[in-house]
Amino acid sequence: MDNINVLVDTLKEKFSSKISVSDDGQSLVVSSADIFPVLKEIKENTQYNFLADLTAVDYPERMEVVYHLMNIKDAGLIRVKALLDKSDPKIDSVVFLWDTANVMERETYDLLGVIFEGHPDLKRILCPDDFEGHPLRKDYKVEPAVRQ
């Protein structure tokens, strides 16, 4: 992980209080409403313009969508997080910034139930279409297979 403090200083000018640094100093935290403009700014005006990974994590009190952005020159990585309300996990899609977000957002929707607004074709990708629930949520319990 690269040091994000330099990046935060430049972003502060434009987004002021909308962004912050996480407690461990490793990630940039953005509220879910501001994710698109912040990522657009990072993509267009910094070196971190490659979307290396997109996923989400289900914590007891909130849902976090996690973006890993990479600098293609020296493989430096930064982590950007968006905090979501668990009762209504919605966030803007970033397909317009990176085509690769298309499959990654579908996967995150499928497995964790995060709704990406503005995604051109948000549907399940790994689980079957008639699957019920989102398996990577912590409240989804796996039952042992019935043996006959």
């Binding site: 290396a52 990974d53 996923t55 994590v57 289900d58 085509d99 690769t100 298309n102 499959v103 990654m104 996967e107 990577l136």
Partner: peptide
């Protein structure tokens, strides 16, 4: 607590329609 696997084939296949 959570392990996400980022697989290159999954992402590469996304470029196939193009």
């Amino acid at each position: 607590y959570r392990l996400h696997l980022h697989s290159p084939s999954f992402v590469n296949l996304g470029a196939y329609p193009k």
